[in-house]
Protein backbone atom coordinates (compact mmCIF):
# COMPACT_ATOMS: atom_id res chain seq x y z
CA UNK A 1 0.00 0.00 0.00
CA UNK A 2 1.21 3.50 -0.78
CA UNK A 3 1.99 5.50 2.35
CA UNK A 4 0.77 9.01 1.81
CA UNK A 5 2.01 11.99 3.77
CA UNK A 6 -1.13 12.58 5.77
CA UNK A 7 -2.24 11.89 9.30
CA UNK A 8 -5.42 11.50 11.33
CA UNK A 9 -6.13 13.13 14.70
CA UNK A 10 -9.11 12.14 16.81
CA UNK A 11 -10.43 13.90 19.90
CA UNK A 12 -13.03 12.55 22.29
CA UNK A 13 -14.21 13.06 25.85
CA UNK A 14 -17.32 11.79 27.65
CA UNK A 15 -18.35 8.51 25.99
CA UNK A 16 -14.98 8.28 24.23
CA UNK A 17 -14.11 4.67 24.92
CA UNK A 18 -17.27 3.21 23.43
CA UNK A 19 -17.01 5.33 20.30
CA UNK A 20 -13.31 4.62 19.83
CA UNK A 21 -14.02 0.91 20.23
CA UNK A 22 -16.23 1.18 17.15
CA UNK A 23 -13.70 3.12 15.12
CA UNK A 24 -10.13 2.11 15.92
CA UNK A 25 -10.51 -1.71 15.75
CA UNK A 26 -12.17 -1.27 12.35
CA UNK A 27 -9.04 0.19 10.79
CA UNK A 28 -7.40 -2.45 8.56
CA UNK A 29 -4.00 -3.99 9.22
CA UNK A 30 -2.60 -2.08 6.24
CA UNK A 31 -3.88 1.32 7.35
CA UNK A 32 -1.07 3.62 6.19
CA UNK A 33 -1.49 6.77 8.25
CA UNK A 34 -0.41 7.70 11.75
CA UNK A 35 -3.45 8.15 14.01
CA UNK A 36 -3.13 10.50 17.00
CA UNK A 37 -5.76 10.29 19.71
CA UNK A 38 -6.56 12.58 22.62
CA UNK A 39 -9.04 11.31 25.17
CA UNK A 40 -9.78 13.41 28.23
CA UNK A 41 -8.70 11.25 31.12
CA UNK A 42 -8.05 12.18 34.74
CA UNK A 43 -4.34 12.66 35.55
CA UNK A 44 -3.46 9.18 36.73
CA UNK A 45 0.04 7.86 36.64
CA UNK A 46 -0.54 5.25 33.96
CA UNK A 47 -3.21 5.27 31.35
CA UNK A 48 -4.80 2.00 30.42
CA UNK A 49 -5.91 3.27 27.03
CA UNK A 50 -3.00 1.98 24.96
CA UNK A 51 -3.18 -1.42 26.66
CA UNK A 52 -6.93 -1.63 26.21
CA UNK A 53 -6.83 -0.80 22.51
CA UNK A 54 -3.68 -2.75 21.68
CA UNK A 55 -5.61 -5.93 22.37
CA UNK A 56 -8.42 -4.93 20.03
CA UNK A 57 -6.81 -3.17 17.08
CA UNK A 58 -5.23 -4.56 13.95
CA UNK A 59 -2.59 -1.83 13.77
CA UNK A 60 0.01 -0.99 16.43
CA UNK A 61 -1.06 1.05 19.47
CA UNK A 62 1.18 3.04 21.81
CA UNK A 63 1.26 5.89 24.31
CA UNK A 64 3.36 8.86 23.23
CA UNK A 65 6.87 9.50 24.48
CA UNK A 66 8.55 12.85 24.02
CA UNK A 67 10.70 13.29 20.85
CA UNK A 68 9.47 10.05 19.33
CA UNK A 69 9.31 10.01 15.52
CA UNK A 70 5.78 9.72 14.10
CA UNK A 71 5.13 6.17 12.92
CA UNK A 72 2.80 5.44 10.00
CA UNK A 73 0.06 2.87 10.59
CA UNK A 74 0.22 3.32 14.34
CA UNK A 75 -2.28 4.68 16.84
CA UNK A 76 -0.69 7.00 19.41
CA UNK A 77 -2.55 8.09 22.54
CA UNK A 78 -1.63 11.27 24.40
CA UNK A 79 -0.42 10.40 27.92
CA UNK A 80 -2.48 11.53 30.90
CA UNK A 81 -1.55 14.98 32.25
CA UNK A 82 0.50 16.00 29.18
CA UNK A 83 -0.42 17.82 26.00
CA UNK A 84 0.72 16.01 22.87
CA UNK A 85 1.95 18.07 19.90
CA UNK A 86 3.22 17.25 16.43
CA UNK A 87 6.39 18.99 15.28
CA UNK A 88 6.99 19.95 11.65
CA UNK A 89 9.90 17.47 11.54
CA UNK A 90 7.27 14.77 12.23
CA UNK A 91 8.25 13.99 15.77
CA UNK A 92 5.99 14.05 18.81
CA UNK A 93 6.55 16.47 21.63
CA UNK A 94 4.82 16.78 24.98
CA UNK A 95 4.13 19.75 27.19
CA UNK A 96 2.88 20.44 30.69
CA UNK A 97 1.46 23.83 29.73
CA UNK A 98 -1.77 24.89 31.38
CA UNK A 99 -4.88 22.82 30.69
CA UNK A 100 -7.13 24.08 27.88
CA UNK A 101 -10.83 23.99 28.80
CA UNK A 102 -9.71 22.21 31.99
CA UNK A 103 -8.18 19.49 29.85
CA UNK A 104 -4.65 18.15 29.64
CA UNK A 105 -4.19 16.51 27.23
CA UNK A 106 -6.17 18.96 25.13
CA UNK A 107 -7.62 18.27 21.70
CA UNK A 108 -7.06 21.89 20.61
CA UNK A 109 -3.34 21.66 21.36
CA UNK A 110 -2.94 18.47 19.32
CA UNK A 111 -5.09 19.65 16.41
CA UNK A 112 -3.51 23.10 16.13
CA UNK A 113 0.02 21.68 16.08
CA UNK A 114 -1.03 18.93 13.65
CA UNK A 115 -2.54 21.54 11.33
CA UNK A 116 0.81 23.36 11.34
CA UNK A 117 2.74 20.14 10.73
CA UNK A 118 0.57 18.50 8.08
CA UNK A 119 -1.51 21.29 6.56
CA UNK A 120 -4.00 20.09 3.99
CA UNK A 121 -2.90 16.46 4.48
CA UNK A 122 -4.41 16.45 7.97
CA UNK A 123 -7.74 14.88 8.91
CA UNK A 124 -9.34 15.94 12.20
CA UNK A 125 -12.19 14.05 13.85
CA UNK A 126 -14.24 15.33 16.81
CA UNK A 127 -16.28 12.71 18.63
CA UNK A 128 -18.59 12.67 21.63
CA UNK A 129 -17.78 14.91 24.59
CA UNK A 130 -19.17 17.33 27.14
CA UNK A 131 -17.01 20.42 26.71
CA UNK A 132 -15.71 22.74 23.99
CA UNK A 133 -12.16 21.46 23.62
CA UNK A 134 -11.37 20.61 20.00
CA UNK A 135 -13.55 23.24 18.33
CA UNK A 136 -10.69 25.70 17.78
CA UNK A 137 -8.37 22.90 16.75
CA UNK A 138 -10.80 21.55 14.17
CA UNK A 139 -11.15 25.03 12.75
CA UNK A 140 -7.35 25.30 12.50
CA UNK A 141 -7.26 22.08 10.48
CA UNK A 142 -10.10 23.34 8.30
CA UNK A 143 -8.36 26.64 7.66
CA UNK A 144 -5.26 24.78 6.47
CA UNK A 145 -7.37 22.94 3.94
CA UNK A 146 -7.43 19.67 5.88
CA UNK A 147 -10.39 17.33 6.19
CA UNK A 148 -12.73 17.91 9.11
CA UNK A 149 -15.17 15.35 10.46
CA UNK A 150 -17.58 15.72 13.37
CA UNK A 151 -19.62 12.93 14.87
CA UNK A 152 -23.31 13.52 14.30
CA UNK A 153 -24.41 14.95 17.68
CA UNK A 154 -27.58 12.84 17.51
CA UNK A 155 -25.40 9.71 17.71
CA UNK A 156 -23.10 11.05 20.44
CA UNK A 157 -23.20 10.04 24.09
CA UNK A 158 -22.53 13.72 24.90
CA UNK A 159 -23.46 16.29 22.25
CA UNK A 160 -21.70 19.41 23.55
CA UNK A 161 -18.31 18.78 21.97
CA UNK A 162 -19.50 17.89 18.45
CA UNK A 163 -21.96 20.78 18.59
CA UNK A 164 -19.28 23.23 19.66
CA UNK A 165 -17.03 22.02 16.85
CA UNK A 166 -19.80 22.50 14.30
CA UNK A 167 -20.61 25.95 15.62
CA UNK A 168 -16.97 26.94 15.24
CA UNK A 169 -16.41 25.16 11.91
CA UNK A 170 -19.77 24.60 10.18
CA UNK A 171 -18.33 23.13 6.99
CA UNK A 172 -17.15 19.92 8.72
CA UNK A 173 -18.60 16.62 7.50
CA UNK A 174 -21.22 15.36 9.93
CA UNK A 175 -21.09 11.58 10.08
CA UNK A 176 -22.34 8.65 12.14
CA UNK A 177 -19.88 6.19 13.69
CA UNK A 178 -19.84 3.70 10.79
CA UNK A 179 -19.53 6.44 8.19
CA UNK A 180 -16.54 7.86 10.07
CA UNK A 181 -14.77 4.53 9.71
CA UNK A 182 -15.67 4.32 6.00
CA UNK A 183 -14.47 7.84 5.45
CA UNK A 184 -11.13 7.29 7.18
CA UNK A 185 -10.51 4.17 5.09
CA UNK A 186 -11.84 5.57 1.80
CA UNK A 187 -9.58 8.61 2.04
CA UNK A 188 -6.43 6.49 1.86
CA UNK A 189 -7.77 4.08 -0.77
CA UNK A 190 -8.36 6.79 -3.30
Amino acid sequence: MIVSGGAVAIGASAGAIQMLLRILPALPKTYPLPVFVVVHVPPGRRSELATLFAGKCRIAVQEAEDKQPVIAGTITFAPPDYHMLIETDRTLSLSTDDPVFFSRPSIDVLFESAADAYGAAMTGVILTGANEDGANGLRAIGLCGGRTIVQNPATAYARAMPEAALARWPSACVLGPDQIVESLIAAVDS
Binding site: L85, S95, D116
Partner: peptide
Amino acid sequence: AQASIKRR
Protein backbone atom coordinates in the same frame (compact mmCIF):
# COMPACT_ATOMS: atom_id res chain seq x y z
CA ALA B 1 10.60 22.61 20.39
CA GLN B 2 8.70 24.59 17.80
CA ALA B 3 5.12 23.53 18.41
CA SER B 4 4.98 24.64 22.05
CA ILE B 5 6.92 27.85 21.50
CA LYS B 6 4.55 28.76 18.68
CA ARG B 7 1.60 28.16 20.95
CA ARG B 8 3.06 30.38 23.65
